[in-house]
Nucleic acid binder design. Sequence first.
DNA 1: CCTACCGATCGGTAGG
DNA 2: CCTACCGATCGGTAGG
Lengths: 213, 213
Amino acid sequence: MTKNHSEEIRRRIQEEATRQFATRGFSGTSLETIADGVGIRRPSLLYHFGSKERLREAVLEELFQHWKDEIPRVLTAATGEQDRFDATIEAFLGFFLEDPNRARLILREALDRPEELQKFLQHHLTPWSKIITHYIRLGQRLGLVGDRVNPEAYVIQVIVQVIATTAVGYVAAAVFESEVRQSREAKVAELVRMARASLFLRPSPSKEVEDNG
Amino acid sequence: MTKNHSEEIRRRIQEEATRQFATRGFSGTSLETIADGVGIRRPSLLYHFGSKERLREAVLEELFQHWKDEIPRVLTAATGEQDRFDATIEAFLGFFLEDPNRARLILREALDRPEELQKFLQHHLTPWSKIITHYIRLGQRLGLVGDRVNPEAYVIQVIVQVIATTAVGYVAAAVFESEVRQSREAKVAELVRMARASLFLRPSPSKEVEDNG
DNA sequence: CCTACCGATCGGTAGG
DNA sequence: CCTACCGATCGGTAGG
């Protein structure tokens, strides 16, 4: 009884905190405005999360856990080279498009606490990024991927690109007047086109391509 | 005499504020720590810049002015298609590589005050970004640039990529262990390679290419 | 350029 | 889950 209600209010606090931390930043958000958003008083919030710092940790932990759960589901799915590329980048993009605040939180962590984010990336993402570079090198041996591609640097660039575009891409779009301003879909489509065109040697190979003589 | 000294201390305050705003954010920085960094007291700082908000405006104005001055110098220089591409992206990248805090400040503005940044981009960058898309369309007519390139979306993606990579690229590099971690140069080289490979149809055309029959 | 001081807001605690 | 209260820190002002 009490427990269900307590978990529910905890969830609502964490949800509100996620939104406010993402849009105004950690130091730009006060516990007062979070409590207001939930409809309770600040000391009540502090009963559920002992301190502002603990609330921040809970928000990030949920985000990272969600991300970690998503990765293996994606990488183990697809089969062919092109297939694998499509599935990976679409799932990766989809995760952040589903809620751009995820990308904003990560970008803010990269700016505010770079060392801590690096530790998380190193411990939880390294095995998976190594798998991706392994497949890129396989593609190079098969003659599908250009030799001038630097697999590690390529993966880093795509990660940065996906997160930055979903977080603040709409702001950058203001370099054009509204008549030609690009929709979110157009920007995402161009991102995928660029990632693909700068990886594969041929524009859109069929799945059976195996002979490169 | 007094004026020279006053201008000098103003410069030092602005410099220190630029560094602290970029690394800790506007709301994460107190006037006290800025004054400390300069070696004066907070009320003395407030004599030069009437308020924290005015200091922020001065910091951003300097950055934006510097950027605006740089653009025409670059775009009017180069001649050929490939030349123009190299000169533009190198100068654009160089501006942020020279001081990554510039990229961090812009990224923070995009997160903290998106509407204001959009206004700046719209008023001061639109003419120049239109020139770039004009040249991309010229390249498409000449058969040098692929038809599937969306000129506006491409420009937006490259802008986002350059700023995000120079601001926080080194953090993302932690997805690999230190043995294979990429140097700044490797990441920048890959960024340029990706931008080029996803724009031009042929890998590295010679400069004299003008006949597309 | 300083010291001294201001009200407002911050995160957090006591006690119920 | 609340009211009442805490010290610390915030940006900013007075006055010299």
